[in-house]
Every structure is written in structure tokens, then in C-alpha cells.
Design a binder for these strands. Structure first.
Lengths: 366, 366
DNA sequence: TTGTAGGCGTTATCAA
DNA sequence: TTGATAACGCCTACAA
């Protein structure tokens, strides 16, 4: 079944010039009236109004229990009324701690890392921290540069959608003395905390599943290096154990979109009617592969079984629906955020190494 | 055609305990050796080593042309060697400007706003700024609280995937005196800069397209208030102009996932064989609607034409592929980032109000 | 329980 | 072109 997509281009609006939106304008609410002040209120202003010293205001906000209830109430009232918010830069400069948590995404274009960042931001925001997004692009030099910047920024914590491989960077990060969560892999010796995923097991599960579905001539597609390499390793190990053959391996450099999966699938298909199943160890590529298979008129899973990894709404929704080694990316972010928040609030987490469960979600494609 | 999705649960690994990943450990590179220092280098250290005063180092980094070439070279060499990075907190405290750009997403769960944030981060990172993500949840109080925080944070700029409706917040933001980009709507009077999209026109285009496909009994589904309301307005206007009937309107509160579209489509379908076309003015809902239609055995577009908005890989890839009023979310973020960076670098943008083109991408669903 | 003194690291301002 | 001085707003350390 060949699917054609046709885009008809039409002008935005009849005359070519857009219609302005009549956006609703809501007049100021009663209490929000102080928005007009150009200058931010300082702790000193609050102190004066409350008839206490600045440090007392500071204490009311950081360690309320150390202040007498009467004073506290009075100060809080002024804080409320003026809408005072402490200057995070001054606070960070003096205390050496900021309320910013830095997140480093291996690939900022990937849906799953964005999901994880989203989950992390959500949890941290509740705890009064803000998430700042950076990108490492799977590159050592970028990573090193980022860590330089961190030394000065002194974030409250760090969340990485990956693990740090460069020893000097590991050491540098550890010496920041802040909570750090690595994720998406399961090393024995994380820098600090870990929300980990066994990529080796993911590969093993994938192989086991395909073999259990009666496949014997397997193919593998994944990213070169890092987690892709680990998934391949598990896949190969299991294949050896089970005595099945891996007839095709393709490692790719970079993946930006679903359509990158099209060419890859054609390679797998061209490499012969040799392979009867392929494990595509990347979420976007796998969906692209399924869609391309249909275009080529391949029957999935009869001609070729396709198994993906990660899980998205779409994997389950396309036709044929995609079987995956599934885990919940948003949950990884949330758990990381929770670990960081707990560590910062003094509640030392009991399990500094958390293990992310995977499951084999079998659908139509295998 | 009814599609069943079946998940088989399997243990992560044979013995229940996961296999640790043998993550590659890369020994420290030659030049990256300074990672070990626990304390960050200060500007004073660099100054001493270079035999100049701290302020000269500062100038070398902020306004190099004002320093003599000889001095500059000497200082830069020391900066390079020590890996000095200025302390952003101290810098922000003294100068009242930070290198952080704040992004406020209307809905942190939405793919398209994440895309926009991603595009914005990418551009800004090149210009030396970092993006910090916040969420306003379409809520006035959240928005007001966020703006309070901004007064103290003094970010370099602000990007919003939406427009601010509350007058007091508009005023407060304007008085921050920093570049602000609103987006996703096309008001006549943005706070500062705008990468705007005419939602009214989107509604008009949608209606026009459906009518041009021979439809006469239209339905509308969208978010209540804000942009949803504007899209409905355009849709209704055009329908009146063309003399076609809108037989069903459904405004929803919140959308978190594709599956929210399932129930909605059933409503539209139940509301009778009355509607022969529906404009679903939300990206996730529209995809959910198409998938659900297929499950219900509805023929799309014969029984019901479905038109969405926004554009994602998936809209084009599902079956039947989804026609949309299309625009590029990532590009909106990039353009916003560029505007902010230009304004900050003194290159005043020529067009402070940029208009985002939409086009009608006709595919199989209409 | 509250307050005083001083400095975090940088850059604006003014002077040379 | 370079430097001396002071201040950004807060919080640590110590004192009362």
C-alpha cells in the first residue's frame, strides 16, 4: 500500500495580510496591583516595614522554626503584601547555592529526553527549584565546557539524561558537591545518584522476544557508541546464547526525525530477504521504519518483524502498532527530580541507585 | 477496522536483577586536567597571573575592543589556560543582567510548545544564553507569581508561547525593560516583540477548506478560552460568510494526551450523522480523533472529514494522514530566540512583529 | 530569639 | 587604555 501525501499551499488569508487576533485583555485584579513598581523590593524594605532586621526576614523565609511565631506572622504578612521575592543572584552569591537545577539532555530534539526534562521540571517546581536546560550533544568537549560553567553557576543539582564517560568530567562533577542524577544507563559506579536503565538487558530482551516469536535471522539498527553500543552488546550476547544468527548490523551517527528511519529500513530490506526481524534500538527510527515498511508493501510482521525501544503514544497508535522494549521517560525525569529534591531537603534518599523497570510491550509489529 | 493493543508483561531480566551496563570510561584528556580543582577560579586570580587589574579582565571578556591588543592577548591566554568562567551570580547581581532567558510554556506537556522551547534554546545557546523553562498552565495566578520571581531574577529576556492577557502582568513585564517575545497569537499590541500567528485566520482557513471539500454541516472542537476561542471565532465568521451551518461546538478544558481525543470524537460522531466535517483545533486531540474514527469503523473523510492544526511528524504519518492548518512550532521558537539575541546584541530587529505563515496541508483526512 | 558586621565576585563609575 | 573604589542584595559568622 503506497501512501501519498499531498500538501496544497494556500495563502494565509484572502488579502495576504493576516487578521489580527482580538485577544482578550483582562483588567488588573485587585490584589495584583503592585505589578507596577519598576524596582524589585529588597529584603531591607520588608524588614523596615515589619520593624525587624533584614536577617530576621531572611530567617523567616529559610528556617521559619527558628523565629518566634509572632515575628514570623508579622514578617510574612509584609512579604505577602509586598510580593517580596528574594534576589536569587545575591542569595546564590552569598550562600554558594542557587535554586536552579541544571538538566543536560543528550539530544535536545528527542521526544523522550524532552519528556524526561518535563517530568523533572514538574517535580522540582513544586519543591521551589527551577530547571535550566542545557545540551551536551553526545560530545565530550561540549560536556567539559558545560561543567566549567557549572562550577561558577553552582546549581542546586544536576540531572543528566545519560551518564558521563570522561573521567575528568566525572571527578569535576563529583567535586561540585551537589546532588547529581545520571540516568538512561546502569553503570556500577555512577557519579552520585542514578535512575538507571539496563541497556544490556534491553538488548537481551529484544533478542529473546524476537526469537520467541519464531525469528531466526535477526538485524540490529542503533546509534553508534554509548547506549546503542550497550544494546547491541546485549542483543548479540543473547543471540549467541540462543544460537540464532545476526545477519545485519547498522550503526548510525545521529537521529533527528522519524524520516531518518525510512532509509534505514530500506537498507534492512535490501540486505536481503535475509533478515526476518529487526530490533531498531531508537524510538524515532523504529516508528519511521514501520511506516516505511508499509510504503514498501512489506508485510509487518510476516515479512519482517520490527521491535522498537522507548515508548510513546505513537508507538501504540500507528498501524501496525509497534512492539517495544518499553519504559517511561517522563517517570525517569520525575524520579530524578524527586531524588534531587529529597537530597536537598535533607531527606537522604534510601536508594541512591534506582532501577527503571522495562517491559516488553508486544503489539502488532512482532 | 478495530485495532487491539496487547501488552505482555515480562520481567526485566531472567533472574529479576538487572545486568549492569559496562559503560565506557574514558580517561581524562590531556588539556582537560583542571577539572579537579574544587574551587572555581575568580577574576582576581586571572588578573594576578596576567599582571593586570580585575576590571581589565572583565573588559577583555565583555568589551574586548576597549582593551589594547597586547593586554587582551595576555589576558586571554590566562583565561584559556585556567579555564576561567565568570560567576554568573556575581555578574548578574552587579550588572542587573543575567545570561538566562526565561521561557514560559502554556502547557509543558504539549509537544509543540516543547518543540518551540527546543528551537529557542538552540538559537540562544549559540549566542551564549541559557534557557530556563517555566510553566504558566494557562493560569493567571501562576503567571503573576512567575513574574514576581522574574523581577528578582532579572533574566536577559523572556519567551512566551502565548500572550499575556492580564493588564497588570503586561505592565509589570514591560517594566522589566528586557526583550520579551510573545507568540502563538497575533494581538495588535504585544508587550514588546511578537512571533505571531493569527488564530482567527486559522479558524477561517479551516472553515474555508472544509467547505471547499464539499462539506456543509461543520463541527468544532477546541480549548475553551484563549486561542481556542479565537479559532472558533474565525471558524464561525467564515461559516456565516459562506452560509454553512455549524452543527456542533465542543470546548474542552485541558488536553494532556492523544487519548483525550478519543472521547471527543465519539461525541462528535454521536451528535449525529449531523456533522460531515470537524475542525479539531488542537494538535493532540486531532490525532486522537483520527485514530478513534478508524476504531469506530467510521470512514474518514467519507463519513466525517477531520482537520487538525499545528503540524507534527505524526499528523502526516498516521493513516489516514491528517490534514492540518500547518505552521512550524520549532521555527517559532527559533525566531523568538533570534529576536531576543539580536535585541541583546544591540542589533535592533527591523520587524518587532513577525508574522508566522500558515498553510493548509491537505492530506487524506479531508 | 534577634541583631551587627562583613564579604561573596563582579562590574558601574569616576579618575588618571 | 587602565585602575581604584564602591556597591549590587543577601546570608554566614559571631555576638548579645
Amino acid at each position: 500500500m503506497v501512501e501519498t501525501v499531498q500538501d496544497s499551499e494556500r495563502p494565509t488569508s484572502p488579502g495576504g495580510s493576516p487578521t489580527f487576533d482580538e485577544v482578550v485583555r483582562v483588567p488588573s485584579a485587585l490584589g495584583a496591583g503592585d505589578g507596577g513598581k519598576g524596582k524589585a523590593i529588597r529584603i531591607e524594605d520588608v524588614a523596615r516595614e515589619a520593624g525587624v532586621s533584614p536577617i530576621t526576614v531572611s530567617r523567616v523565609l529559610r528556617s521559619p522554626d527558628v523565629v518566634s511565631p509572632a515575628t514570623r506572622t508579622r514578617v510574612l504578612a509584609v512579604v505577602q503584601r509586598t510580593g517580596y521575592v528574594s534576589n536569587p543572584h545575591a542569595s546564590a552569591l552569598r550562600s554558594g547555592r542557587s535554586s536552579i537545577v541544571a538538566a543536560f539532555l543528550s539530544n535536545i530534539f528527542s521526544q523522550q529526553y524532552n519528556d524526561a526534562a518535563t517530568g523533572c521540571a514538574e517535580v522540582l517546581e513544586e519543591a521551589g527549584y527551577q530547571l535550566m536546560i542545557g545540551q551536551t550533544s553526545y560530545s565530550y568537549s561540549r560536556e567539559t565546557a558545560a561543567i566549567q560553567a557549572l562550577r561558577a553557576l553552582k546549581p542546586a543539582g544536576i540531572f543528566m539524561t545519560g551518564v558521563v564517560e570522561l573521567e575528568s568530567n566525572r571527578r569535576a562533577m563529583r567535586e561540585l558537591g551537589i546532588p547529581i542524577v545520571e540516568s538512561w544507563a546502569l553503570p556500577r559506579d555512577p557519579i552520585d545518584m542514578l535512575v538507571g536503565l539496563s541497556n544490556t538487558d534491553a538488548g537481551r530482551m529484544a533478542c529473546e522476544h524476537l526469537v520467541s516469536r519464531g525469528r531466526r535471522r535477526l538485524a540490529f539498527v542503533g546509534r553508534r557508541g554509548g547506549r546503542g553500543r550497550l544494546r547491541l552488546k546485549g542483543f548479540e550476547e543473547k543471540a549467541r546464547e540462543l544460537g540464532v544468527e545476526i545477519v545485519f548490523v547498522r550503526e548510525v551517527e545521529n537521529v533527528q526525525s522519524i524520516s531518518d528511519g525510512h532509509a534505514i529500513l530500506r537498507e534492512v530490506a535490501a540486505e536481503g530477504s535475509k533478515a526476518d526481524a529487526v530490533f531498531v534500538a531508537n524510538d524515532l527510527l523504529a516508528i519511521g521504519a514501520v511506516l516505511e515498511a508499509r510504503r514498501l508493501g512489506l508485510s509487518v510482521p510476516d515479512d519482517l518483524a520490527i521491535l522498537g525501544i522507548g515508548d510513546s503514544d505513537f508507538a501504540a497508535q500507528i498501524t501496525p502498532s509497534l512492539s517495544v522494549v518499553a519504559f517511561d521517560a517522563t517517570a525517569i525525569g520525575r524520579r530524578a527530580g524527586r531524588l534531587i529534591a529529597e537530597r536537598l531537603s535533607g531527606t537522604a534518599p534510601i536508594h541512591p541507585i534506582e532501577h527503571v523497570e522495562m517491559r516488553l510491550a508486544q503489539r502488532q509489529s512482532t
